[in-house]
Nucleic acid binder design. Sequence first.
DNA 1: CACCAGGCAAGCC
DNA 2: GGCTTGCATGGT
Length: 285
Amino acid sequence: MKFKENEQGIYLYGEKSFNITHIFECGQCFRFKREEDGSYTLNACGRVINISRLENGFLFKNTNADDFLNIWVNYFDLERDYEKIKTEIAKDDIIKKAVDFGYGIRLLRQDPFETVISFIISQRNSIPKIKKVVALLCENFGKEIDFGGKKHYAFPTCDTLASLDVSDLAILKCGYRDKYIIDAAKKVKNGTVNLNKIGNLPYSEAKAELLKIYGVGSKVADCILLFAYGKYNSFPVDTWVKKVMLRYNVAEKDIHSFCNEYFGENAGFAQQYLFYCERESGFDS
DNA sequence: CACCAGGCAAGCC
DNA sequence: GGCTTGCATGGT
Protein backbone atom coordinates (compact mmCIF):
# COMPACT_ATOMS: atom_id res chain seq x y z
CA MET A 1 0.00 0.00 0.00
CA LYS A 2 1.64 3.19 -1.23
CA PHE A 3 0.30 6.74 -1.05
CA LYS A 4 1.35 10.36 -1.25
CA GLU A 5 -0.21 13.42 0.29
CA ASN A 6 -0.68 16.46 -1.94
CA GLU A 7 -2.66 19.70 -1.93
CA GLN A 8 -5.81 17.94 -3.19
CA GLY A 9 -5.76 15.04 -0.75
CA ILE A 10 -4.25 11.57 -0.93
CA TYR A 11 -2.96 9.80 -4.02
CA LEU A 12 -3.06 5.99 -3.70
CA TYR A 13 -1.01 4.07 -6.25
CA GLY A 14 0.53 0.69 -7.05
CA GLU A 15 -2.47 -1.32 -5.88
CA LYS A 16 -3.87 -3.69 -8.50
CA SER A 17 -6.75 -4.93 -6.35
CA PHE A 18 -8.55 -1.63 -6.02
CA ASN A 19 -11.35 -0.45 -8.28
CA ILE A 20 -13.89 2.08 -7.02
CA THR A 21 -16.67 0.78 -9.25
CA HIS A 22 -16.17 -2.78 -8.00
CA ILE A 23 -15.87 -1.70 -4.36
CA PHE A 24 -19.01 0.42 -4.30
CA GLU A 25 -21.27 -1.36 -6.77
CA CYS A 26 -20.80 -4.83 -5.31
CA GLY A 27 -23.66 -4.44 -2.84
CA GLN A 28 -21.82 -4.21 0.47
CA CYS A 29 -22.33 -0.49 1.02
CA PHE A 30 -25.20 1.90 0.29
CA ARG A 31 -23.96 5.41 1.07
CA PHE A 32 -22.12 6.41 -2.10
CA LYS A 33 -22.92 8.32 -5.24
CA ARG A 34 -21.40 7.86 -8.66
CA GLU A 35 -20.74 11.35 -10.03
CA GLU A 36 -21.01 12.35 -13.69
CA ASP A 37 -17.22 12.35 -14.03
CA GLY A 38 -17.06 8.72 -12.90
CA SER A 39 -15.72 9.53 -9.46
CA TYR A 40 -17.45 8.27 -6.33
CA THR A 41 -18.52 10.36 -3.36
CA LEU A 42 -18.59 8.28 -0.20
CA ASN A 43 -20.31 9.03 3.07
CA ALA A 44 -18.83 6.93 5.88
CA CYS A 45 -17.19 7.22 9.27
CA GLY A 46 -18.88 10.57 9.81
CA ARG A 47 -17.02 12.01 6.82
CA VAL A 48 -17.56 12.62 3.12
CA ILE A 49 -14.79 12.00 0.61
CA ASN A 50 -14.58 11.85 -3.17
CA ILE A 51 -12.46 9.25 -4.96
CA SER A 52 -11.49 9.49 -8.60
CA ARG A 53 -9.43 7.24 -10.83
CA LEU A 54 -6.24 8.71 -12.27
CA GLU A 55 -3.77 7.15 -14.71
CA ASN A 56 -1.92 5.00 -12.22
CA GLY A 57 -3.86 5.32 -9.03
CA PHE A 58 -6.69 7.01 -7.18
CA LEU A 59 -7.18 10.47 -5.74
CA PHE A 60 -8.96 10.73 -2.38
CA LYS A 61 -10.28 14.28 -1.91
CA ASN A 62 -11.20 15.85 1.44
CA THR A 63 -8.73 13.85 3.49
CA ASN A 64 -5.12 14.05 4.65
CA ALA A 65 -2.36 11.70 5.73
CA ASP A 66 -3.57 11.49 9.33
CA ASP A 67 -7.16 10.70 8.42
CA PHE A 68 -6.05 8.33 5.70
CA LEU A 69 -3.86 6.30 8.06
CA ASN A 70 -6.28 6.40 10.98
CA ILE A 71 -9.55 5.84 9.11
CA TRP A 72 -9.43 5.01 5.42
CA VAL A 73 -6.63 2.43 5.44
CA ASN A 74 -8.76 0.38 7.82
CA TYR A 75 -12.08 1.14 6.08
CA PHE A 76 -10.79 0.04 2.66
CA ASP A 77 -8.82 -2.88 4.14
CA LEU A 78 -5.71 -1.56 2.39
CA GLU A 79 -3.15 -3.62 4.28
CA ARG A 80 -4.53 -6.96 3.11
CA ASP A 81 -2.97 -8.89 0.21
CA TYR A 82 -5.94 -9.42 -2.13
CA GLU A 83 -3.76 -10.90 -4.88
CA LYS A 84 -2.96 -13.77 -2.55
CA ILE A 85 -6.60 -14.30 -1.56
CA LYS A 86 -7.76 -14.29 -5.18
CA THR A 87 -5.14 -16.86 -6.13
CA GLU A 88 -6.17 -19.10 -3.24
CA ILE A 89 -9.90 -19.09 -3.97
CA ALA A 90 -9.76 -19.28 -7.79
CA LYS A 91 -10.23 -23.04 -7.90
CA ASP A 92 -12.52 -23.42 -10.94
CA ASP A 93 -13.78 -21.55 -13.99
CA ILE A 94 -16.86 -20.10 -12.28
CA ILE A 95 -14.99 -18.37 -9.46
CA LYS A 96 -12.08 -17.48 -11.76
CA LYS A 97 -14.40 -15.57 -14.05
CA ALA A 98 -16.04 -13.83 -11.07
CA VAL A 99 -12.64 -12.80 -9.68
CA ASP A 100 -11.56 -11.46 -13.08
CA PHE A 101 -14.82 -9.52 -13.38
CA GLY A 102 -14.64 -7.92 -9.92
CA TYR A 103 -10.86 -7.91 -9.49
CA GLY A 104 -10.88 -4.60 -7.61
CA ILE A 105 -13.35 -5.51 -4.87
CA ARG A 106 -12.28 -4.97 -1.29
CA LEU A 107 -14.38 -5.94 1.72
CA LEU A 108 -14.97 -2.71 3.61
CA ARG A 109 -14.75 -2.40 7.38
CA GLN A 110 -18.03 -0.62 7.94
CA ASP A 111 -19.55 0.69 11.14
CA PRO A 112 -21.40 -2.15 12.93
CA PHE A 113 -24.54 -0.21 13.89
CA GLU A 114 -24.89 1.31 10.42
CA THR A 115 -24.43 -2.14 8.89
CA VAL A 116 -27.05 -3.70 11.19
CA ILE A 117 -29.67 -1.12 10.26
CA SER A 118 -28.76 -1.04 6.55
CA PHE A 119 -29.02 -4.80 6.11
CA ILE A 120 -32.27 -4.97 8.07
CA ILE A 121 -33.56 -2.58 5.42
CA SER A 122 -32.02 -4.73 2.68
CA GLN A 123 -34.25 -7.74 3.19
CA ARG A 124 -36.54 -8.42 0.22
CA ASN A 125 -35.60 -5.06 -1.30
CA SER A 126 -33.64 -4.06 -4.40
CA ILE A 127 -30.31 -2.29 -4.00
CA PRO A 128 -31.61 1.03 -5.46
CA LYS A 129 -34.51 0.94 -3.00
CA ILE A 130 -32.19 0.15 -0.10
CA LYS A 131 -30.06 3.16 -1.02
CA LYS A 132 -33.14 5.40 -1.10
CA VAL A 133 -34.41 4.28 2.29
CA VAL A 134 -30.98 4.59 3.93
CA ALA A 135 -30.56 8.06 2.41
CA LEU A 136 -33.96 9.14 3.80
CA LEU A 137 -33.04 7.74 7.20
CA CYS A 138 -29.86 9.83 7.25
CA GLU A 139 -31.48 13.00 5.89
CA ASN A 140 -34.17 12.88 8.53
CA PHE A 141 -32.22 11.73 11.58
CA GLY A 142 -28.50 12.22 10.87
CA LYS A 143 -26.15 15.08 11.65
CA GLU A 144 -25.42 17.49 8.81
CA ILE A 145 -22.03 17.36 7.06
CA ASP A 146 -20.93 19.99 4.53
CA PHE A 147 -18.85 18.94 1.55
CA GLY A 148 -18.44 20.34 -1.94
CA GLY A 149 -21.05 23.04 -1.41
CA LYS A 150 -23.70 20.43 -0.63
CA LYS A 151 -25.31 19.16 2.52
CA HIS A 152 -24.68 15.55 3.42
CA TYR A 153 -25.88 13.64 6.46
CA ALA A 154 -24.11 11.24 8.77
CA PHE A 155 -25.72 7.95 9.63
CA PRO A 156 -28.05 8.44 12.64
CA THR A 157 -26.68 7.44 16.03
CA CYS A 158 -28.08 4.53 17.99
CA ASP A 159 -29.32 6.94 20.68
CA THR A 160 -31.27 8.96 18.12
CA LEU A 161 -32.98 5.95 16.56
CA ALA A 162 -33.66 4.35 19.95
CA SER A 163 -35.54 7.50 20.99
CA LEU A 164 -37.96 7.24 18.06
CA ASP A 165 -41.31 5.55 17.73
CA VAL A 166 -42.12 3.21 14.84
CA SER A 167 -44.52 5.83 13.46
CA ASP A 168 -41.61 8.30 13.13
CA LEU A 169 -40.20 6.07 10.40
CA ALA A 170 -43.29 6.26 8.19
CA ILE A 171 -41.52 8.82 5.98
CA LEU A 172 -39.01 6.12 5.01
CA LYS A 173 -41.71 3.99 3.36
CA CYS A 174 -39.70 0.94 4.25
CA GLY A 175 -42.73 -1.24 4.87
CA TYR A 176 -42.71 -3.79 7.67
CA ARG A 177 -39.01 -3.18 8.35
CA ASP A 178 -39.72 -0.03 10.41
CA LYS A 179 -40.38 -2.01 13.60
CA TYR A 180 -37.19 -4.01 13.06
CA ILE A 181 -35.12 -0.82 12.94
CA ILE A 182 -36.55 0.46 16.20
CA ASP A 183 -36.09 -2.89 17.90
CA ALA A 184 -32.44 -3.06 16.81
CA ALA A 185 -31.68 0.46 18.07
CA LYS A 186 -33.36 -0.20 21.42
CA LYS A 187 -31.61 -3.52 21.99
CA VAL A 188 -28.21 -2.01 21.17
CA LYS A 189 -28.86 0.98 23.41
CA ASN A 190 -30.07 -1.01 26.43
CA GLY A 191 -27.28 -3.58 26.11
CA THR A 192 -29.41 -6.57 25.15
CA VAL A 193 -27.18 -6.78 22.09
CA ASN A 194 -23.54 -5.77 22.54
CA LEU A 195 -22.07 -4.76 19.18
CA ASN A 196 -18.70 -4.01 20.75
CA LYS A 197 -17.97 -7.55 21.84
CA ILE A 198 -18.98 -9.26 18.59
CA GLY A 199 -15.62 -8.59 16.95
CA ASN A 200 -13.90 -10.72 19.57
CA LEU A 201 -16.34 -13.64 19.41
CA PRO A 202 -15.99 -16.70 17.18
CA TYR A 203 -18.34 -16.83 14.20
CA SER A 204 -21.22 -18.85 15.66
CA GLU A 205 -21.36 -16.91 18.93
CA ALA A 206 -21.12 -13.60 17.10
CA LYS A 207 -23.99 -14.64 14.86
CA ALA A 208 -26.12 -15.72 17.84
CA GLU A 209 -25.67 -12.26 19.36
CA LEU A 210 -26.96 -10.60 16.18
CA LEU A 211 -29.89 -13.02 15.87
CA LYS A 212 -31.31 -11.55 19.10
CA ILE A 213 -32.46 -8.62 17.01
CA TYR A 214 -36.03 -8.86 15.70
CA GLY A 215 -35.69 -8.74 11.92
CA VAL A 216 -32.13 -10.08 11.77
CA GLY A 217 -32.00 -13.63 10.41
CA SER A 218 -29.24 -15.84 9.14
CA LYS A 219 -28.54 -13.99 5.89
CA VAL A 220 -28.58 -10.47 7.34
CA ALA A 221 -26.39 -11.61 10.25
CA ASP A 222 -23.89 -13.04 7.77
CA CYS A 223 -23.79 -9.73 5.89
CA ILE A 224 -23.14 -7.81 9.11
CA LEU A 225 -20.39 -10.23 10.16
CA LEU A 226 -18.71 -9.97 6.76
CA PHE A 227 -19.12 -6.25 6.00
CA ALA A 228 -18.62 -4.77 9.48
CA TYR A 229 -16.60 -7.27 11.48
CA GLY A 230 -14.36 -8.93 8.90
CA LYS A 231 -15.57 -12.44 9.75
CA TYR A 232 -14.35 -13.81 6.44
CA ASN A 233 -15.71 -17.32 6.91
CA SER A 234 -19.18 -15.78 6.76
CA PHE A 235 -21.01 -16.57 3.51
CA PRO A 236 -24.30 -14.68 3.01
CA VAL A 237 -26.72 -16.61 0.80
CA ASP A 238 -29.27 -14.55 -1.10
CA THR A 239 -31.21 -15.13 -4.31
CA TRP A 240 -28.19 -14.31 -6.51
CA VAL A 241 -25.80 -16.56 -4.66
CA LYS A 242 -28.36 -19.37 -4.78
CA LYS A 243 -28.35 -18.99 -8.56
CA VAL A 244 -24.56 -19.24 -8.72
CA MET A 245 -24.48 -22.28 -6.50
CA LEU A 246 -26.84 -24.11 -8.79
CA ARG A 247 -23.93 -24.19 -11.22
CA TYR A 248 -21.84 -25.96 -8.60
CA ASN A 249 -24.66 -28.54 -8.28
CA VAL A 250 -24.98 -27.76 -4.58
CA ALA A 251 -28.38 -28.03 -2.90
CA GLU A 252 -29.55 -24.92 -1.06
CA LYS A 253 -29.28 -26.47 2.39
CA ASP A 254 -25.68 -27.54 1.72
CA ILE A 255 -24.35 -24.17 0.50
CA HIS A 256 -22.70 -23.12 3.76
CA SER A 257 -20.97 -26.42 4.45
CA PHE A 258 -19.84 -26.75 0.84
CA CYS A 259 -18.42 -23.22 0.59
CA ASN A 260 -16.65 -23.27 3.94
CA GLU A 261 -15.02 -26.53 2.90
CA TYR A 262 -14.29 -25.50 -0.69
CA PHE A 263 -13.16 -21.89 -0.21
CA GLY A 264 -11.91 -22.27 3.36
CA GLU A 265 -11.37 -19.28 5.65
CA ASN A 266 -11.74 -16.91 2.68
CA ALA A 267 -15.26 -18.01 1.76
CA GLY A 268 -16.62 -14.50 2.36
CA PHE A 269 -14.35 -13.02 -0.30
CA ALA A 270 -15.43 -15.69 -2.78
CA GLN A 271 -19.06 -14.95 -1.98
CA GLN A 272 -18.62 -11.28 -2.81
CA TYR A 273 -16.91 -11.89 -6.16
CA LEU A 274 -19.61 -14.42 -7.08
CA PHE A 275 -22.47 -12.14 -6.01
CA TYR A 276 -21.14 -9.12 -7.90
CA CYS A 277 -20.47 -11.05 -11.09
CA GLU A 278 -23.79 -12.83 -11.02
CA ARG A 279 -25.74 -9.65 -10.48
CA GLU A 280 -23.86 -7.35 -12.85
CA SER A 281 -22.74 -9.44 -15.76
CA GLY A 282 -25.55 -11.80 -16.65
CA PHE A 283 -23.14 -14.62 -16.09
CA ASP A 284 -25.64 -17.28 -17.21
CA SER A 285 -24.40 -19.55 -19.99
C1' DC B 1 -51.85 -8.19 -14.35
C1' DA B 2 -47.89 -11.07 -12.34
C1' DC B 3 -43.35 -11.48 -10.46
C1' DC B 4 -39.19 -9.98 -8.10
C1' DA B 5 -35.91 -7.58 -4.82
C1' DG B 6 -28.81 -8.99 -0.80
C1' DG B 7 -35.39 -12.55 4.04
C1' DC B 8 -37.74 -12.83 8.14
C1' DA B 9 -41.11 -14.21 11.86
C1' DA B 10 -44.79 -17.01 13.04
C1' DG B 11 -47.24 -21.01 12.76
C1' DC B 12 -47.36 -25.44 11.85
C1' DC B 13 -45.44 -30.45 12.07
C1' DG C 1 -34.84 -29.32 13.56
C1' DG C 2 -37.43 -28.25 8.55
C1' DC C 3 -41.37 -26.50 5.66
C1' DT C 4 -45.08 -23.02 4.44
C1' DT C 5 -47.15 -18.57 4.41
C1' DG C 6 -47.80 -13.54 4.87
C1' DC C 7 -45.46 -9.45 4.51
C1' DA C 8 -44.78 -3.21 2.59
C1' DT C 9 -43.12 -1.03 -1.18
C1' DG C 10 -41.60 0.05 -5.78
C1' DG C 11 -39.83 -1.48 -10.24
C1' DT C 12 -40.34 -4.13 -14.60
